[in-house]
């Protein structure tokens, strides 16, 4: 049963991140996702100190506030003469460091240790269960990320055309009256939610991989946005299953193995993608050469 919960939680984390990651990479904002995943740390710690518990709701709120603050500061800096990548670098390291300081200051009160924040520990997920009316409902982490994933699916499903047009052509979107800025911040809120819900399981560093790698893989494999979303989620699930198998075979970190698998899947897509793949292109070149001889 524990195996099932670990794989399920991992799959939900990876699919949820992969789903939103598609929009991030299409808008060339993968690094902004990276920034959010780090900078929400102080939000989590402050929510933790204020609420005195590890309930998901205060953490989500804390993370969303700091996540949106990150996006806002990055925008403010880059509109006032700081280069966009430098603005991202400055903002998230500053906020992350505040988080690190807070964690180390309040280690007595805060039941969060830095290793856990950075790397997560998905293997412990099955033991932290949610009791509801005296019934064991299963791991808290699975419910948290599951709920956030459902919210993302619901909102993106409902406003798919808005998200698509804002990603492809924000100027037209604004001209026909779609509130582009609202949808930008909505996406960033969902990214913040997903990141904090994924935090406990895979940690701040590997969340980034899950935001970027499955969607980058999917991008190579299709030319339709909705197919890309499904492939990205599928790749996420594969990462979780094979990552777990790899980790238990080698007796290593589960989150690390998941990410390694995602890298491997990306490499396969990069080599064998039907249209962009290196191998296909090499074969085509070779065929042309043989044809001309």
């Amino acid at each position: 049963m524990n195996t099932f919960w670990i794989i399920l939680t991992g799959a939900l984390v990876a699919a949820s991140c992969g789903f939103l990651g598609c929009f991030l990479i299409l808008r060339r904002m993968a690094m902004l996702g990276d920034a959010i995943s780090h900078s929400i740390l102080p939000g989590i710690v402050i929510a933790f100190l204020l609420s005195g518990s590890r309930d998901i709701l205060p953490m989500l709120i804390g993370a969303a506030v700091v996540g949106l603050l990150t996006v806002f500061i990055v925008q403010l800096l880059s509109q006032n003469g700081v280069k966009a990548d430098a603005a991202i670098g400055v903002t998230f390291t500053a906020l992350f460091s505040v988080g690190v300081v807070l964690v180390s200051l309040y280690t007595a009160q805060v039941d969060l240790d830095l290793d856990c924040v950075l790397y997560g520990e998905i293997a412990y997920v099955p033991w932290d269960t949610w009791q509801w009316g005296g019934i064991d409902m299963g791991p808290r982490a699975a419910w948290g990320i599951g709920g956030v994933f459902l919210l993302s699916l619901l909102l993106v499903g409902l406003f798919f055309k808005q998200f698509k047009l804002c990603s492809f052509d924000p100027a037209l979107a604004a001209a026909i009256g779609i509130p582009v800025v609202f949808f930008h911040y909505l996406l960033m809120t969902l990214v913040s939610f997903t990141t904090v819900a994924a935090f406990e399981s895979v940690g701040a560093i590997l969340v980034v991989a899950m935001l970027v790698v499955p969607s980058a893989t999917a991008y190579l494999l299709t030319e339709k946005l909705h197919v890309m979303l499904f492939i990205s989620m599928g790749v996420g699930v594969l990462c979780s299953v094979f990552g777990y198998l790899l980790a238990s075979w080698m007796d290593s970190s589960i989150a690390g193995s998941m990410t390694a698998v995602s890298g491997l899947l990306f490499l396969l897509a990069f080599l064998f993608s039907p249209r962009h793949g290196m191998v296909i292109r090499m074969l085509a070149r070779r065929r042309m050469r043989l044809g001309t001889n």
């Binding site: 299409l26 060339r28 698509k164 990603s167 492809f168 052509d169 100027a171 030319e223 339709k224 197919v227």
Partner: peptide, 13 residues
């Protein structure tokens, strides 16, 4: 809009 204002590698037809 100007043609260059969008990313023509966007996955769509």
């Amino acid at each position: 809009p100007q043609r260059e204002s969008v990313d023509w590698d966007f996955p769509t037809d």
